[in-house]
Nucleic acid binder design. Structure first.
Lengths: 236, 236, 236, 236
DNA sequence: AATGAATGAGACTTCATTCAT
DNA sequence: CATGAATGAAGTCTCATTCAT
């Protein structure tokens, strides 16, 4: 999708090699950096670029290790400009979380609704997770990173909790409730199954979302296992 | 075990209430702070305390967010003293990783050896994971944190790789190979099963190792699932 | 007077509650923000509003702590618009100084002229100071703040000096000269009396101009003291 | 006094001209800056130097305009080292306030106690103010600056209030109470006289404490006025 | 073996000002 | 005339690490 395109900023400051264009050098090639509003700049576009860049950086390096400078550099702006759009780094994190949750759970809900049995719903969710991973690996990676960082930093935990951005609990509860209705899940096993779904999805996210092929294999393995077809009982 | 005892430092700086021993106070009453080696401390003991404290801190807050100052404070020493035992923060991380891997895989190997079928070996490992979690939750939590931080910071990745500290791949390979030998795993499914074990253990670690009760439930759920007893196929 | 009315800006950004119009929101309902010149604003009126707002802000928070953004917000415009009326923040300060000095010394001169003796002139000035304080407390407060900030920041000192905006020295010199003429002040005491007037007015401004009641009391106390009626010589 | 000596740091970085010794140049004259603890450095001495430097800087430029860099530079250390002694800039301010109040009111109390009438007590205080100003002009200047900055910045106000550092109210209350006892102040005039003392001392501080000669003249003028000897009533 | 004073780099953030629209 | 996107410099503070004692 267009969301994770590699940030084509207007001015030509993308080159990571040059790193320090501080002193405005005037050479024949690149024009000197200018003050004021750059031509052809759009608010929404820049903001979007920041969120995009932030999702990838937070996913790869975590919240702490992602610096405003790296965000700014990747987004083709200066660190100060970030504060035109967000009040703080925490605020950027919240924006990314909101966007990611929205994008992911729209797809998960659609997948779940299109299936008629519990087991099919779970499989559909697993398949959708894989599709999403193929479309934009930074989504799942951010989700994993966010879970870790929210556990590590109370400020992130509080911010995400206060805006009720995390849809996972509701979503899995609904699926298990459905499984009980269809009889595929015994009522007394509700907690076990919920726990299982949680462990499986966390495992998928954290173990293989950075490797598309491995992710494919893991999804297949889980589907086989859920269908009881992966393991043969010991002969004796 | 002594590993996670609450750090009895020699000097009396444990009181978390006072929190701010920054300004060097000079009062006439108390004896002057003793320089040189405190009587009751042995080198090995201090080093062990640092590793202990570091495991918990790295597990909870990650490598970056753990400061030398907090390590020193928790261990009852000063930041400078750390450098008598370790060359750098990275070095502490490596020491923790080595200790944790050793402690965990000794137990995992023992558990695995005591079981006679593939499925029993897997179940034994899951049970051992739970036992370890009950004994010292910081073990699994560190393993999860380490996996995240090694992915995030190349320096950690390199340090751990160069000392070949991570036993997980070998261990699971051996188990799957055994499963093929007993016929419980089809040769063609080797990769699938390996992936499954990886996803499951990562999931366990990252999803529930911070909550003993949830961990218990998850282990039970996984055992039932592996035994094919958790889910009922849809009736129609 | 109209000088300290609460700033009725054209655009609807007055609501102090919402406080954070940073992120440019796009909603379908409200009409698009109008570009170009807002209908009800005249250039002079806007400029006046900026000066007004600036006097109060400089008085309360000082030159440094007053940000262009806060000025713009209070005046109901944007930071960029300020630069249509003033070349710099320093320029705004100069404009406020000029306006305040003009307003104050017109009144002081009138008061002084209406009295026939030195002591009456001084009392008239003190009374006028109190009247002004009742009319618009920001005048005296700005004068106090300006004296402090001019001492602190050479740029302010230079700017005010180069435009000869400060009337105080001339004004008090004239009064003392008059006192010598009437015989109320001995020629040899000229400097002492000048110093006294300076200390008293600075004291009034800095000590009590932010509290009308205290200001009233202080003026009364000074008048009694100058008339020799406040203190009883020790009995022995 | 030794308190305001011009900061003789160990390393020779005082020269304000060179401003940026960042790249460790090795020239024949000055040795390269070194890491680690400098030889012959004492905790108390450095802390004292910071407080000293801070008193002068806060007095001259105010709290906001005083940067950590300037404090560090004047104290012959780096900005980071400041945080070895103080938790924040605010903390430095509080330390200076405490030291100044202590030094000043010890002298004021002594002066007041040595006099036997109200008028003599007031005169003794005025004289002591002048003596102090001669010994270390930054004391009175800081007091004036602090009063302004506490009015401007709530954080300073709160910090000073919460530690009850300001002795002025108690001190003047005591003196006026004494005046009532001796009959020099009528009971009904208590508030007037209190106000007068406040205005006079604020005036002295803010108007002339930066000029020793002017301060001398002002103190003389006030003493004459209080004695009823400065002004001659108009002849008619 | 241990302390704690100090450094230097770098983090987040704010702000006056500029300029395309 | 006015907006608001963007810059660049500067500020406060933190931290791993070094080193005299």
């Amino acid at each position: 999708m267009a969301t994770s395109k590699p940030a084509t900023p207007k001015t030509s400051k993308t080159s990571k090699a040059s790193e320090k264009p501080k002193t405005p050098k005037i050479d024949a090639v690149s024009p000197p950096p200018k003050l004021g509003r750059p031509p052809a700049s759009s608010s929404a576009e820049t903001r979007g670029r920041i969120v995009d860049v932030a999702r990838r950086c937070f996913a790869e390096q975590g919240f702490e290790a992602t610096t405003n400078r790296s965000l700014a550099q990747e987004a083709g702006i200066t660190t100060g400009a970030i504060y035109h759009y967000f009040e703080s780094k925490l605020d950027i994190f919240v924006a990314v979380e909101a966007e990611v949750q929205s994008r992911v759970y729209i797809r998960f809900r659609a997948a779940e609704r299109s299936a008629d049995t519990f087991i099919e719903k779970v499989e559909a969710v697993l398949e959708t997770a894989h599709e999403l991973n193929r479309e934009d690996a930074s989504l799942a990676q951010f989700i994993g990173a966010s879970r870790v960082d929210r556990r590590r930093f109370p400020e992130l935990r509080r911010a995400v909790a206060s805006k009720q951005l995390d849809n996972s609990a509701d979503f899995f509860n609904d699926i298990v409730a459905f499984g009980i209705k269809t009889g595929e899940v015994k009522a007394k096993d509700a907690q076990l199954v919920l726990s299982l779904l949680y462990v499986i999805t966390v495992g998928l996210t954290d173990a293989v979302s950075n490797n598309l092929e491995a992710h494919r294999i893991a999804v297949d393995a889980l589907k086989e296992l859920l269908g009881g077809k992966l393991l043969t009982p010991p002969s004796a």
